[in-house]
Amino acid sequence: MGYIKLENISTDFCLKDIKLSISNGEFVVVLGHSGAGKSTLLNILAGFTKHSGNLYLNGELINNVATQKRGIGYLHQGIHLFPNLSVYENIAFALKAKKVDKHNVAKEVQKITQMLQISHLLGRYPKNLSGGEKQRVGIARSIITKPKVLLLDEPLSSLDETTANDIRKELKALSDTLKLTVIYVTHNKLDAKVLADKIVYINKGEIYKIANKYEDYQ
């Protein structure tokens, strides 16, 4: 049985009978055109969208488990850093919400920001960050709690090519180092080519094809 298992998942308007199994530590890229249902799939995994069918995480049925208790990291397409919080407070948000003591929060923030080379941004507010910096802060915020699963919704779509290439490499390195299970939604085939252990192509709400590497997908 997969680490994440989707069994006959359907929604009223979008997804139809999705069956998918994802192994622990796998980097899955979900490809598809706009409106295909990619983001809806992530929202289901995060617990934001109602659905029929069963969703399992590490063997446990999580259909009715609240988002807060699923142990996932989710980076939305628009990143949505909290504008009222500094970069430090954004990254520390999840730890503070879990009442981790200040000393450990500072230590974890330092560790993750060094890894992503954004330590110099900690005192800034999101309005003063570039697109690439926002993306790195968003990634740091999503993985600081070492989530079981990281959901990424078109994380590179608004970046220039050079920055996107850099962050793509960093994401791959991070997922390998932290052994993250990643579900990465995109319409960019290059992302699939560089990042994917498994490629899932969704079309009109249905899984059209699953491939284990880009060559198979082609």
Binding site: F48, K69, H76, H80, F82
Partner: peptide
């Protein structure tokens, strides 16, 4: 307030009061 801010905070494990 865009719902995505609330969803992001939920995904980060924050309680409703937080």
């Amino acid at each position: 307030i865009p719902q995505d801010y609330i969803n992001s905070a939920k995904a980060l494990g924050a309680s409703n009061s937080y």
